[in-house]
Write a protein that binds this DNA or RNA. Sequence first.
DNA 1: CGTTTCAATATGTATATACATAATCGCCAT
DNA 2: ATGGCGATTATGTATATACATATTGAAACG
Lengths: 248, 248
Amino acid sequence: MSLVETDDIEGGESISLHQRILSDIRDKILSGAWAPGHRIPFEHELTAQYNCSRMTVNKALSQLAKAGLIERRRRSGSFVRQPQSQAAVLELHDIRIEVEALGLPYRYERLARIKRRSGAEDRALLGLSAPGPVLALESLHFAGERPFALEQRLINLSAVAEAAEEEFLDIAPGPWLIGRVPWSEAEHRIRAMAADETIADALDIDASAPCLVVERRTWSAEHPVTHVRFIYPAESHTLVARFTPSQG
Amino acid sequence: MSLVETDDIEGGESISLHQRILSDIRDKILSGAWAPGHRIPFEHELTAQYNCSRMTVNKALSQLAKAGLIERRRRSGSFVRQPQSQAAVLELHDIRIEVEALGLPYRYERLARIKRRSGAEDRALLGLSAPGPVLALESLHFAGERPFALEQRLINLSAVAEAAEEEFLDIAPGPWLIGRVPWSEAEHRIRAMAADETIADALDIDASAPCLVVERRTWSAEHPVTHVRFIYPAESHTLVARFTPSQG
DNA sequence: CGTTTCAATATGTATATACATAATCGCCAT
DNA sequence: ATGGCGATTATGTATATACATATTGAAACG
């Protein structure tokens, strides 16, 4: 009814008001319209603007605060934070969940898919001793409009034959592999790197900008399954891992 | 109601009910008490258990869903999700051991040592709510002739009073703290960064060269102990972490 | 016997309200 | 002036309530 009537776009898109406030503000921040340090409207002002209750506004703002986009100060208001703090967890690395945890729409796009006989480099990455068929995939993960991560993956077709039949147009290789192939061991390598031209191009960042690189090799019962390299723009990504000694 | 009365340790720490529900459930899941697929209590059951309104329960569950720990299905209930955490193993690394493993001679050099009352930034890094004395240390770790890592550390003197008497000229803060302070929890943040001039100078690399930054916060029994930031030149360092799925 | 319909149920979203808490501003007294 | 103190203000948390929506299970129907 009159609740959703703040001029809808002609899509008739029926997203929740809460989502609408959230993305409105996020857009303002990410587009730079509201620079870091800028004070965003008070809850009661947003309440008036969107013609809704304070609880609804509050929930949206709390969410933005938890995502690290804004900082809230009692009696003073809410302020756009310095860009940082995109949080992710090292544990299982499902990019969709990472992105959605930030409250951003997730999108996946396959860039390339090549089936070939493994060369020396492929074998080194996968840890194979003998040549064999491999599938090389390159894809992009988006958070909203921006590229979030570039994925470069090798799949050992000797270990996962069914992958040869999959196009990976609609599903990312990570989720596809999970559940299909029980993994027994994995190794992460994490490092920093300057973006070369190809990477900078794909991620839409400056050439030689610093990137965080996470590589993972996975084995299943001694057989190499896959090698994947995720490349994140430095400013958009921080890995977070929390430990407690021994017992979980 | 017996649930709510666990009542405060003598810190008077009064966390919100919402936080309490959240961590209760998270603990159940992460400890394995509630396995993947398990149906967690309905909102109205939790409402009864915690003697609170549905909104409060709903907020907590929504948050868990957004974090990817549970999945919510209308009419059916909420269920623990599949991908259980692999206990992340990035051990607290000792730089001396890293360097010596490379077969290079290790050397440590303290650059600065300042005792001060914690400012806002110090408190943010350590996670302190009230001001108090802290020790700020800056040191360099060498591998052979070359700087291997720059260390910037804060020690909470309220938690580790003896550190105030130590000069840290001959022993690095890391090894000094280990063994003296049993830690109960740690959080790592890993990211890439371009070196600013100060860092480039200390590490003897080009300005704006990519660096790997590892930050760690450590707590002992709820008390913040130390915050440390290691900055490595990108080309000299890769973190390696190896997991085996935590059997459960 | 299969299909359609409908009511029951659990979650999703929103409202109005209330009181707590922290930070700030301005007033007042020294 | 100036240092302290109370009033004001914005956020933090919780409540009770309402209705929407998706899904399920069972009843009604052809």
